[in-house]
């Protein structure tokens, strides 16, 4: 049996076929495809605030990208460009805390990395153009911007990425303070792009979108770590 990777989902009004704006649990296909290609079995975990019972069948947890997390999670008021979905925050935080308690392998992507940071006492920049003076981390709607990241030698992400350090970004918020996590990758402008907890079996956050290219280095590492817990 393949390791099961639970992936958190969006809940958004969605339209397809004859249907218009139905409340829908959804997740870009790339995530499940990347898990499948890396040898895992993806299941999607729609938000639920009752309990974290579902973790008993998961071998790994992937916290996916999406809208901004509530600034209240790091002690700030929402800024004018911040778009939040509090019910998703609540459900994902509940799962994340329980997964941390179990030392389950965890990968956070984009919003997922930002949630990891907030859960570890860190803070975010709510709108990067206001801080950095440029929009190179989100150049246009639905367009990923390419960056060359610099990874800390000896870190997990440096070992996984090897010589190919190209990353694809689409975000307008970023990590200001990583809290108890360690920044192990940065963009050319110094913005944190990867965070880890080196004391855990597998806890990695990436600000870019490795699922789009089905990156076997990163998803393979998650599935391999999950295989050890299954």
């Amino acid at each position: 049996m393949r390791p099961i990777i639970g992936i958190t989902t969006y809940v958004m009004p969605a339209s397809w076929g004859v249907w218009r704006d139905l409340p829908t649990a959804l997740l870009p296909h790339d995530y499940a495809a990347a898990v499948t290609r890396a040898g895992g079995r993806a299941v999607l975990i729609p938000p639920d605030d009752q309990d974290t019972d579902v973790l008993r069948v998961l071998d790994g947890l992937l916290i996916s990208g999406g809208p901004d997390i509530s600034p209240g999670l790091y002690g700030e008021e929402p800024g004018p460009h911040t778009v939040i979905h509090p019910e998703r925050d609540e459900a994902e935080l509940l799962l994340l805390q329980a997964a941390l308690d179990r030392d389950l392998p965890i990968l956070g992507v984009c919003r997922g990395m930002q949630l990891l940071v907030a859960a570890h006492g860190g803070t975010l920049h709510q709108h990067l153009p206001d801080v950095l003076g440029h929009e190179r981390h989100r150049v246009a709607p639905a367009v990923y911007s390419r960056h060359d990241a610099v990874f800390t030698p000896g870190s997990r992400i440096a070992e996984l990425m090897g010589a190919d350090v190209a990353i694809n970004c689409f975000h307008h918020q970023g990590v200001a303070d990583p809290g108890k996590l360690v920044v192990t990758g940065r963009a050319e402008d110094g913005l944190p792009e990867a965070v880890e907890d080196p004391d855990r079996r597998f806890l990695l956050g990436v600000q870019w979108h490795p699922e789009v290219g089905r990156d076997r280095r990163i998803f393979g590492a998650l599935v391999a770590a999950a295989a050890q817990s299954s």
């Binding site: 139905l22 649990a25 959804l26 993806a42 999607l44 975990i45």
Partner: peptide, 26 residues
């Protein structure tokens, strides 16, 4: 996207289950 109308998820949660979505791409 892998997706499902939330009515199904809510129906499972309202009747005492915990829903997970099984994607068809596998």
């Amino acid at each position: 996207a892998g997706m499902l109308p939330m009515n199904y998820v809510k129906a499972v949660h309202a009747t005492g289950g915990r829903a997970v979505l099984v994607t068809p791409d596998d």
